[in-house]
Design a protein around this nucleic acid. Structure first.
Lengths: 237, 237
DNA sequence: AATATTAATTATGTCCTACATAATGCAAAA
DNA sequence: TTTTGCATTATGTAGGACATAATTAATATT
């Protein structure tokens, strides 16, 4: 099919798309910040020469993302978008495809491998005590076994995320966990009775001891061994 | 203030919130998957006994997130949500607060520290050649200097993300980069003329050599040194 | 004068009806 | 068989009306 080189493409933005772009320009031109009030729906509609319905639909997009918040009688203000919220909804609707699930599973592993320096910089005595409690409880339940328990993993590692003192990371992990668990339960059928196949077995106790008295490098080495079952599965794919 | 224990809380979900919940239930009850068609706006409105406008607002939320896609004359289908898209918009509107920006800056570092195993598992000869070109070009420009260049960082590390073969991570990085750059340019005033303060200087060439012939552990150690300027800044805060 | 109550106003939330528009399907003509 | 024209379809847009929660102002009570 030969392209028509003399005919320019027709702009096919919908009216609501255009309104949204105009809103963005308006916010930038006026240097609006989080917390600032913005004009009313009717004011925007009149200024743009469109119906309130179209303005409403554009604003509704921004509301969904979290860029604005609206109150009856008061109007609307700019808010900091919650960058995790819509990720939550995607998961809630069970609409992530296999490839994305796999990506997220890997992303979780990458984060676990990458957070050592933050943990060492930000650990407190209180944190270590709580971790000790978690590990002691897990040791009682497991009794010298190498079986992999996802629930214990989630408890221990969840605490590590908390210790990072990075709230975005924590919120992100709250979402990664269900995905991780879903993939683990449904897509990796051999995982449930998994035993460590090679190398030294690194327990949560080992990790905690290093976190208490070791170095970030040593922690990374140990974490890699600890996560070996998962790495084995994804790196062979 | 003593709670009234005999009075049940008033449900204050808006009508559109309720419609959204019903839609979610409907999708789950009918086991709908990506690509499946869903009923028309009017059909939903009639079935739920609400106006088309309220259904439209609920559907518009889902459309914004990417859960559904609508076509004139054809109706709507379920799609895999693009989990990165709304993150893009948050950045586009310049509405992230300082704390979130800092979190994202750290998140980037964590990802860099964590991706070694994927790189080693998925590197190709082609990848290494391209990296060699990138590094050679950078070496020509720099000529035995320890100055930190953000642009070179972005080029080199961007290629690493690509090599991970994890599309979510790549898309995520496309977003992290502008934030990283913004924070670097605007929030870390000392960064522009930064020199390495301690330890052995690890270049992109060093990293590439290890990636070619070394181990993931060695790569992690080297990467940590390479990223020392950034880590210094966040870990002292 | 201070406080409580009521009324008025405000701006978003919801509803309804009508029409516009892009897209598909079908029938007729070439 | 291919092209054109028309009818139908379902989302997109418009405009008006009313509902509702929340704020402000006015009035009544103490």
């Amino acid at each position: 099919m030969k392209k028509l080189t003399k005919i320019a493409p027709i702009e096919n933005l919908s009216l609501v798309d255009k309104v949204e772009l105009r809103l963005k320009e308006y916010f930038k031109e006026n240097n609006l910040k989080i917390g600032d009030s913005i004009p009313k729906e009717l004011e925007f509609a009149q200024a743009m020469g469109v119906s309130r319905t179209s303005v409403r639909e554009a604003l509704l997009r921004l509301r969904t993302i979290g860029i604005i918040e609206s109150k009856k009688h008061r109007g609307m203000v700019l808010t900091q978008p919650d960058i995790i919220r819509n990720f939550e909804k995607a998961i809630d609707f069970n609409l992530l495809g296999d490839q994305t699930l796999k990506d997220i599973f890997e992303l979780r592993l990458i984060l676990e491998m990458g957070m050592a320096d933050l943990l060492f910089a930000r650990k407190t005595e209180q944190d270590l005590k709580i971790l000790d409690k978690i590990v002691s409880k897990q040791e009682k339940e497991e009794k010298n076994t190498n079986f992999f328990s996802l629930e214990n993993e989630i408890t221990f590692h969840g605490k590590l995320y908390q210790m990072s003192n990075n709230s975005t990371l924590q919120r992100f992990q709250d979402l990664l966990l269900p995905v991780f668990q879903f993939v683990h339960d449904n897509k990796l059928p051999e995982a449930k009775n998994f035993k460590y196949s090679s190398g030294k077995f690194v327990t949560h106790r080992d990790l905690l001891n290093i976190l208490d008295k070791g170095t970030p490098d040593a922690f990374r080495e140990a974490m890699r061994k600890h996560l070996e079952p998962h790495f084995e599965q994804i790196l062979e794919a």
